[in-house]
Design a binder for these strands. Structure first.
Lengths: 206, 206
DNA sequence: GTCTATATTGAGATAGAC
DNA sequence: GTCTATCTCAATATAGAC
């Protein structure tokens, strides 16, 4: 959500917002041009096609995810803590690039065919799956749940939190990340010895 | 996924499959007609517009959800058990109408404007939220997690399980429902007294 | 770098014969 | 109930003046 410096960035930012709101196909180049304040033909000075705009939006998004995940992994935290930080990192990307996030989530079909994005998506998946496998191996995570099932659940939970506008605005990113992590690690059942939940939540901000 | 009897049903079923796979806008009436084995003009004998086909697919889906949820509620089970059964009921709808489910999940933007679907979606949401509120009130569910946050997480978990093709084919619906419910209620942390997980899972099939 | 004007294509939908 | 033929419109993209 950085303020666009030049025309090109303005076009990308404007298009991203409109794609997220109305969908890629439903947004015409004329509408984008209108919103930017130029005529449709002018867009083609910066981009060879509408699709090229989409690609720019999505590669920025995937690069951001890649960088943040790498940073989290570099810290060398334990499994539970790493999971927590991956959730938070994802939410940070989502809050920083809400439009790109929405596009990425909603236009999966659009992306399926484009090999250029396959790799980025696969790398993100690998990060999660390796973490889960490690946790299971260390006995920290349950072995009776198929890793892929857990991966899908937490992936969707994380990215879907941002479908609508800020989910119940009252929560900060950190609070939402805590809630998600806490549910996934400790469950929604009320426990007498709720000390587990408290201790790990408190441990988050090391 | 019942075998279509007449032309009309065949058109709906074919269109649903294509909409789910390629998206609504990306699927043309000509393609639908081709797949059915007629020419595009003939479709308009059965439907006044492409949009009418979409509406038929989605109202069937919502009606199915409504009916199954009502049946679950009618059993009068306790909170945890009802939650479990709602998960299973949702997965059953998803497996019975995979195309409609995919369309419903992926075309939320398409649906946003249509008031005729708002009510059905709102009713389903009400079922989940009232259950969660009741569980919190009874002290069965945690009070420190905002109900709406939990609702969103489990809703997405349930419906998203069916985005791709059968998620890791090896699991039956019941097994997947058990895994999802178990994670959301008991968490992913390995516990020594894992008897909790075992007992509730065993209790599922009363 | 932006505009005007337009080419081109593809989509949903219709009319009327069979 | 289906086909042939076509209308109409909207969208991406281009060419070339300014």
């Amino acid at each position: 959500m950085t303020e666009p410096q030049d025309r090109r960035e303005l076009i990308v930012a404007t298009a991203a917002e409109m794609f997220a709101r109305k969908g890629i196909r439903a947004t015409t180049v004329r509408e984008i041009a209108d919103a930017v304040g130029v005529l449709s033909g002018s867009l083609y000075h910066y981009f060879r096609s509408k699709d090229e705009i989409v690609q720019e939006i999505l590669s920025e998004f995937l690069e951001e995810v890649r960088a943040r995940y790498a940073e989290v992994l570099g810290r060398g935290d334990d499994c539970a803590q790493t999971l927590r930080e991956l959730v938070l990192a994802s939410l940070r990307v989502a809050s920083q690039r809400p439009s790109a996030t929405a596009i990425y989530q909603n236009q999966l079909r659009y992306l399926r065919d484009r090999p250029e994005f396959k790799e980025g998506a696969a790398e993100a998946q690998r990060v999660w799956l390796e973490l889960i496998d490690r946790g299971v191996a260390e006995g920290v995570f349950r072995a009776d749940i198929p890793p892929r099932v857990f991966y899908r659940l937490i992936r969707d939970a994380v990215w879907m939190s941002w479908r609508g506008p800020q989910p119940d605005g009252m929560y900060s990113l950190e609070e939402l990340a805590d809630a998600i992590t806490s549910i996934f690690l400790e469950g929604f059942i009320a426990r007498p010895e709720s000390a587990v939940g408290t201790s790990t939540a408190a441990a988050r901000r090391r």
